[in-house]
């Protein structure tokens, strides 16, 4: 049987966003089945995100040629461009703390949460926790320790999804990364 039509002109560096969100969705569903406890699921998703972030940062640095960030505001811009590069979304950076060590990322839509509805018993599930992990892992590789967590989520009835990012400390060179 011959091939119908040629290859489409889709960019080989791009992948269908729906394949991505469906793949992630069934991963979350599977982990829920395996762990049963929602808090453990949140932790597992964060851990997987961390692993991704640790490897993702190399890709980011190689592609953007970016140097060291001078302050946390510059970090927030880089984070924003990374979201554009990898997930094709542009979160807004807002709500800076007075000391410039904490900011929020606002997503109009939750990029991973296409086709998702949280059942009642999963109310505490932080569905997109993998993003928080990825951010933490990526920044740890460039010697910035942060904490980040979701404070609003469209899946829980909020108008937008908000991820809060807090600078903890600069990791000194003498400590091997990932070694607590």
């Amino acid at each position: 049987m011959s091939r119908v039509g040629g290859r489409s002109s889709t960019d080989p560096k791009k992948v269908s966003g729906e394949l991505f969100s469906l793949t992630y969705g069934s991963l979350v569903a599977q982990i829920l089945k395996d762990y049963e406890n929602v808090d453990d699921v949140n932790k597992q998703l964060e851990k997987m995100g961390y692993n991704i972030g640790v490897r993702l940062i190399e890709d980011f640095l190689a592609r953007t040629n970016s140097g060291k960030c001078q302050d946390f505001r510059e970090v927030s811009e880089k984070v924003q461009s990374a979201f554009k590069m990898f997930l094709n979304i542009s979160p807004t950076v807002t709500s800076w703390s007075a000391t410039s060590d904490e900011f929020s990322l606002i997503f109009d839509t939750n990029p991973l949460a296409e086709f998702v509805e949280l059942p009642d018993h999963c109310y505490n599930l932080r569905y997109a926790n993998i993003l928080a992990g990825a951010l933490r892992g990526a920044l740890e590789m460039v010697h910035i320790e942060i904490a980040c967590w979701f404070i609003q989520d469209t899946l829980k009835g909020d108008n937008f999804t908000e991820l809060r990012v807090k600078f903890i400390r600069k990791i000194e060179d003498t400590i091997p990364p990932g070694d607590d």
Partner: peptide, 30 residues
């Protein structure tokens, strides 16, 4: 608290959204 519009109220028309293949590859690897 449920979202004001349920998931079934949203339209399906989008779908051209694409993500980077590295993001997918890393997720798949995990």
């Amino acid at each position: 608290i449920r979202p004001k519009t349920s998931i079934l109220d949203k339209s399906l028309s989008r779908g051209k959204q694409e993500v980077s293949s590295s993001a997918f590859a890393l997720l798949f690897s995990e």
